[in-house]
Structures are given as C-alpha cells and as structure tokens.
C-alpha cells in the first residue's frame, strides 16, 4: 500500500528472498491444504448447488496459487546476511506495540472502557512519542474524551463494560 516501502520490496524481491519468506509461504500452503480438506468436509462433491461447492473451488484456487508462490519463492536466492527476520518483520517496537494492544484488550473487559483506554493511550503515547508524560497525559485524556463523546454519547454505542463496573 505504501509506495515507498513497496518499491523497496519490489527491488528486493527481484533479486533475493526476504528473510523468513519461504517459511511464511510454506505455512500459507499448509493452511490452504487444510482449508481444502475443511471445504471438502462441508458437503463433499454432493452437487453443484451444495453449500461446499464454492468453498471447494476457492480452496482449490488457494492451493494452486500457494503452490505457484512457493515455487517462485523457493527458487529465489537466499537473503543477504545483513537482512534479518527480526529487523525486517518483528523489530522490538512492533512486538511491544502488539503486546500493549493485547494487554489493552484484556484489561478492557476487566476494567471497563474508560480506565483501560486511558491507561493504554497514556502508556502507548509515552512509549512511542517520548516527549514527556505531561504531554502524553493530556493527549490521552483529550483523545479519550472525544472518542467517548462521539461513540457513547452521540452514537449510543455500548462500550465494553468491565467486570468491576457492573
């Protein structure tokens, strides 16, 4: 989607494999095969109007294209040693952000929307923006208030309630 990184990729993929790419596409193939068997399990080859027909067709395409992709990827030369999986795909910041996100959703059901969201926004902004806790505090408070007004008060969306709240 992003043009800049995309062109990076294209240049890279023209020459070498990206780190971990062969394992990823192999995994995709595995999932595709699994999907094929699951599709077969729905109704077998009963009739063309059976509920399993399109899933079977789609998963066949899935398997076929996964095979092609695997053939393409495995024939590429291995990635240069300066590119590591961790660097290209899972830098620390990404893992931390993802973990923070998971914690946020976990405490969302525990504490309820307002405290959980505030805590999350505060910690995440502090971590990513690194401009002091005061700014992070006000930015989070502000964002939370706006989200709350728009979703809960204007559009009447029921927000997650915590176990402690009710």
């Amino acid at each position: 989607m992003e043009t800049r990184t995309q062109t990076d990729h294209r240049e890279a993929s023209a020459r070498t494999r990206k780190p971990g790419e062969h394992l990823f596409v192999a995994l995709l193939l595995l999932v595709s095969i699994l999907a094929f068997f699951l599709s077969y399990g729905i109704s077998g080859f009963a009739s063309i109007s059976a509920p399993g027909t399109l899933p079977l067709l789609a998963s066949s395409v899935l398997v076929a294209s996964a095979l092609t992709i695997n053939r393409e990827v495995w024939s590429l030369p291995s990635p240069p040693p300066d590119q590591s999986f961790a660097h290209m795909l899972t830098p620390t910041v990404l893992i931390n952000f993802f973990a923070l996100g998971l914690i946020y959703i976990a405490i969302l059901t525990l504490l309820g929307f307002i405290p959980a969201t505030f805590t999350y926004l505060f910690v995440a902004t502090l971590y990513l923006h690194r401009q002091g806790w005061l700014l992070a505090f006000f930015v989070s408070l502000n964002s939370l208030a706006i989200i709350y007004i728009v979703f809960r008060l204007i559009f009447k969306v029921i927000l997650p309630e915590g176990l402690l709240e009710s």
Binding site: L135, F138, L141, N142, A145, I146, Y148, I149, L153
Partner: peptide, 17 residues
C-alpha cells in the same frame, strides 16, 4: 505551548463529556 493547547482542549472536552 503545545502542552498548554492540549490541556485546554482536554479540559473542554472532558467538561463536555
């Protein structure tokens, strides 16, 4: 200045909420 602006915004929006 940035902090000041943000805090004024916060007070207003929390007040509104």
């Amino acid at each position: 200045r940035e902090i000041l602006i943000w805090s004024i915004c916060s007070i207003l929006s929390v007040g509104a909420a």
